[in-house]
Amino acid sequence: MPEWVPVAMTATINGLAIGLLLFVSAVGLTLIFGMMDVLNLAHGGLFLIGAYLVAESPTWTTFAVGLAAATTIGAVAGGALSLATAPLARRPHLDQALLTLGIALVIAEVLSALYGDDVRPANPPPGLDGAVPILGHQYPTYRLAVIGVGVVLALVFYWMVERTKLGALFRASVADRDMVAAIGIDVRFVRVGVLVVGSALAAVAGFLGGPIYNARPGLDSTILVLALVVVVIGGLGSVRGVLLASLLVGQIESTGRALLPSLASFLLFGALAVTIAVKPKGLLR
């Protein structure tokens, strides 16, 4: 067996894990944009909150408590964001971007005051901290677990958006927001709900991703840029598009780097530029 086979094989599995994690990170961003027309640049900050909460969590109990805390804090932050952006509903996108970027900078500063500027390590919970052999290469169990959780979340979201009444309302709002309001549906509480759920997901993604990425200043903007890339490649407001784009970007960042390491720096944004140049509204819009 030539040496590149196990390299490509583990990289592909890893791309799946990274891609699904990216899906959980980015799906909230696309939901919020689709429903509210708000480009939430504070999304990465919420991810970082989650990552800090999983750091130094040695047992399953602390893991569970931390996960609940991340979900709650994310949801509350989402509620606060909906209050903060409500007065800007009729303002240009750039104003909302400016506001949420300002909030993102403040969140980063608060986290740095709370947790310091050193890296906070995060480890998988007991039992998931080992590795399993794949074609002679060890692969961490925790990343396989992330694949499992990611698949479940992706299925749940797919079902919610494509098969439920709430999902239909969401899709209708993405297609024509004014029409939904015109036919007398009060979308206010749905909008708040979407921001709450989307923000909670960002924090949960940070919590799940913590043991892979660790918690550190700067991780927020890294994740934000990746999530923006995914959301745009997928087509804004499309959950299926985000899933497809996440898996694609996961593979680019993993298999792409393993096979074309000298081009690593150009792969991600090159793929983004090509996608939008060819499909100006993303893959699935």
Binding site: E3, T10, H137, Y213, L219, E253, A258, P261, A264, S265
Partner: peptide, 21 residues
């Protein structure tokens, strides 16, 4: 030898596989 993108690499898995190979 490998030079992962500076400040833009969170996951070293692709490089670790190459080292092992």
């Amino acid at each position: 030898q490998d030079k992962p993108p500076f400040g833009k690499t969170q996951d070293y898995q692709p490089y670790l596989s190459r080292i092992q190979a």
